[in-house]
Lab assay of single mutants.
Amino acid sequence: CHSECLGNCSQPDDPTKCVACRNFYLDGRCVETCPPPYYHFQDWRCVNFSFCQDLHHKCKNSRRQGCHQYVIHNNKCIPECPSGYTMNSSNLLCTPCLGPCPKVCHLLEGEKTIDSVTSAQELRGCTVINGSLIINIRGGNNLAAELEANLGLIEEISGYLKIRRSYALVSLSFFRKLRLIRGETLEIGNYSFYALDNQNLRQLWDWSKHNLTITQGKLFFHYNPKLCLSEIHKMEEVSGTKGRQERNDIALKTNGDQASCENELLKFSYIRTSFDKILLRWEPYWPPDFRDLLGFMLFYKEAPYQNVTEFDGQDACGSNSWTVVDIDPPLRSNDPKSQNHPGWLMRGLKPWTQYAIFVKTLVTFSDERRTYGAKSDIIYVQTDATNPSVPLDPISVSNSSSQIILKWKPPSDPNGNITHYLVFWERQAEDSELFELDYCLKGLKLPSRTWSPPFESEDSQKHNQSEYEDSAGECCSCPKTDSQILKELEESSFRKTFEDYLHNVVFVPRKT
């Protein structure tokens, strides 16, 4: 048989008469490798580009789960590009990614509803959504962080984005990388972005840091009482949809009607710091009717980097990364020049730590249904340095008659930039024990000054392991946590139920 035959053949030295091919099969003959313009397919066939392209389009058009959109890589027609490569849609070739590779997620039936953290986790790592997304989240724990972890990498949506009755959302900033909504599939009414009845939605994105392009379709905003109209108009300008909307697409009466839409800028007039305090004062603000001013709200939190936005980490279910302080308005003076500047002394802060701070007014709604208010920009203030805590785990070892090696770990709280350490030492008198000992005694162990690591005695271990207080009263049991108490109650309830079950099964009433 021919060298490319495997198993047997019907005619000697003829690659077209093989029972099976050793390498690849091409047009009725066995070959060692697939010549151009053919590609290896499933490690035994040679196919042309049209064959591989037909497989790709067949799966793409069917949208069946589990099928493969075949691509070409290293002269092979394979189910998908290997790690580190992405497909070129024009020629199906796998090309190296520039940075992290995109991950295209194809949605069944063309859309997916995100109504819980669990459903959001199914899209973790996706960068391109081939379909439409509907966000409908009523509640949950730590929602802002969970949504950002699972949806934060999405850069492109081919269909539309719909935010509907998501009472738990305060902001859409968890879509931190969303840059493009194509609108290839539109919501009824030709809408590519749809926001309806979101009672706590206050911000779409921080438009000073976020760009969003909507290729096709219109915007729809109705019944978002805490979303200011200025935020919607800003989205029109940034996304390129200005002029597409009709009169009733953006409701003037049901958007922002319960919001404090600040239209003035508060400026800080005085800032002073110490290692654990920050004193702030800002310019006074009074609405047209000074009785509408209820006070100020001061927001602050630790910020290692200057990239904080107002609604980071917030949701309507209680999660809030900001510390909020309510401040009463100052006494009002008739003389504008003698107006008191409101302020606040922030206490209990960490030394040498940068804080993000902003302040906003708290006002009631005027009778004319106009909203007044003022808010400052987010500023960054760093507390002063102070003395560091003591170095940890000092170790001293003498390696000769004239040297001592000293080692330690950095302090747990540096409280500033540590530039150097101060080492103090003092000579001590020799131990009298060394002169009084009889060095001729056998088995004498000389006193040693070398360091030995501390260890816990058996008594201390027994005390720590004991669940009861000892007789001397030195140790006591740790208080039980809520989960331990709940577990004990469940076990007790189970024992009672099981005992009742045994009584009912074992003891049967005697027939009379």
Rank of each mutant, 00 (worst) to 15 (best):
T361Q: 14
R138I: 15
K337N: 13
E109K: 10
M346Y: 01
M346D: 00
H341C: 15
L133V: 12
L153R: 07
Y380M: 04
R247F: 11
F365L: 06
S376K: 02
Y223P: 00
W408H: 00
N211Y: 09
N307T: 06
P225E: 04
D326P: 05
K253Y: 10
T113H: 14
E156T: 10
V324M: 09
A303V: 13
F311I: 08
T361P: 01
D249K: 15
Y194M: 07
S119V: 08
A149Q: 14
T241G: 15
R247V: 09
E236N: 15
E262T: 11
D115W: 01
C228I: 03
Q403K: 14
I157Y: 00
S208V: 07
W322A: 05
N263E: 15
L133E: 00
I232G: 01
F193T: 02
F275A: 15
R347I: 05
Q203R: 11
H233F: 05
P351T: 07
F275S: 14
L294I: 08
E111G: 15
E146T: 04
A251I: 07
S402L: 11
Q314A: 13
L108F: 11
T113A: 09
P388N: 08
D384P: 10
N190G: 11
A303N: 05
N255P: 05
Q199G: 13
P288M: 06
Q245M: 13
D115T: 09
L279Q: 04
D367K: 11
F221A: 14
K350D: 02
R138N: 15
L293M: 11
E246Y: 11
R176I: 06
C126S: 01
G110C: 07
T213V: 14
P342S: 04
V324H: 08
S269P: 01
H233G: 02
K234R: 13
Q354H: 06
E109W: 14
W205H: 07
V397Q: 15
E146H: 04
G256D: 03
T254F: 06
G140Y: 08
S158N: 06
Q216T: 12
D393Q: 11
E310T: 06
M297L: 14
Q199F: 12
R332V: 13
R370H: 03
G217R: 02
I154K: 00
I214D: 01
L143H: 03
G313V: 12
R291T: 14
E122I: 03
H210V: 09
G110D: 09
W282V: 03
K253R: 07
G240P: 03
I188N: 02
C126T: 01
F290A: 13
S208I: 04
G373W: 07
F268A: 01
Y285T: 04
S321E: 13
F174T: 04
D367Y: 14
D249P: 12
Q258I: 02
K226H: 04
E236A: 11
G131S: 02
G183H: 02
D249Y: 13
R369H: 06
R164M: 15
V238Y: 11
S239D: 02
L133P: 00
I405W: 08
L219G: 04
H106Y: 11
N198A: 03
F268W: 09
Q339V: 08
L133M: 08
S166G: 12
P284T: 06
C261E: 05
Q121C: 10
Y372R: 13
A149W: 14
K337A: 13
F193W: 04
N340E: 15
L151V: 15
I214V: 14
Y167P: 15
P388H: 14
H106G: 05
K112Y: 04
S376W: 00
T371V: 08
L349Q: 01
P284A: 14
S319T: 06
P288I: 11
K226Y: 09
S321Y: 02
D292G: 05
V238L: 12
Y300F: 04
E187W: 15
Y380E: 01
G343R: 12
T361A: 12
L180S: 10
F358W: 08
N130A: 11
T364S: 13
P287F: 04
E368Y: 11
E184L: 10
S119P: 04
S158R: 09
F290V: 01
R247D: 05
R281I: 14
L153Q: 07
A259P: 14
T273M: 11
G343Q: 14
P394E: 04
G240T: 03
E302S: 10
A251W: 15
D393W: 15
Q121I: 15
G343F: 03
L186V: 05
Q382A: 15
L147I: 05
W205K: 03
N190R: 09
L279E: 15
E122Q: 05
N141T: 09
T127W: 15
Q354M: 00
I327T: 03
T185H: 15
R247H: 13
V324R: 13
K242V: 11
D393N: 07
W282H: 00
F296S: 02
N136I: 02
L219F: 07
T323V: 14
P391H: 02
S274H: 06
S171K: 08
D257G: 05
F299E: 12
V128S: 13
N190M: 15
Q216E: 01
H210L: 12
D312Q: 03
P342F: 10
F311E: 15
I327H: 02
T353H: 11
C105L: 01
R244F: 05
F220N: 04
I327G: 01
D206Y: 03
K301T: 07
F174D: 00
S333P: 04
G348L: 05
Y191E: 06
E246N: 08
N263A: 12
E231V: 04
L178M: 10
R347Q: 09
I327C: 04
L349G: 01
R369E: 08
E231Q: 04
L293D: 03
A259K: 13
Q306P: 15
S396M: 04
H341K: 09
R176W: 03
S400C: 07
N224K: 00
S171Q: 13
V363N: 11
Q382L: 06
D377T: 12
S389M: 05
L229D: 06
L392W: 05
V104P: 04
L204K: 01
E184W: 12
N263I: 07
L293T: 03
I181G: 00
S319N: 14
R176N: 05
P330E: 10
E156V: 10
D377A: 10
D115N: 06
Q216V: 08
V390N: 12
L252V: 13
L169G: 02
W286P: 05
E237W: 14
H106W: 05
D115E: 00
V128G: 12
I129L: 15
L178E: 00
N141I: 08
T371M: 05
H210M: 05
N200Y: 07
A316L: 11
V128N: 01
R179K: 13
W352N: 05
E109S: 14
A195M: 12
G318Q: 04
K103M: 04
H341Y: 08
I181M: 03
W282Q: 00
Q216A: 11
K162I: 04
L293Q: 10
P351W: 02
K103G: 15
T113F: 03
L196C: 08
P287H: 10
T213Y: 07
R179Y: 11
V325T: 15
P329I: 08
Q339P: 08
L362S: 06
S333F: 01
Y194F: 12
Y305A: 15
L331F: 05
L227N: 00
Y305P: 10
L266E: 00
L229R: 12
A374L: 05
T353Q: 07
G313L: 08
D384H: 14
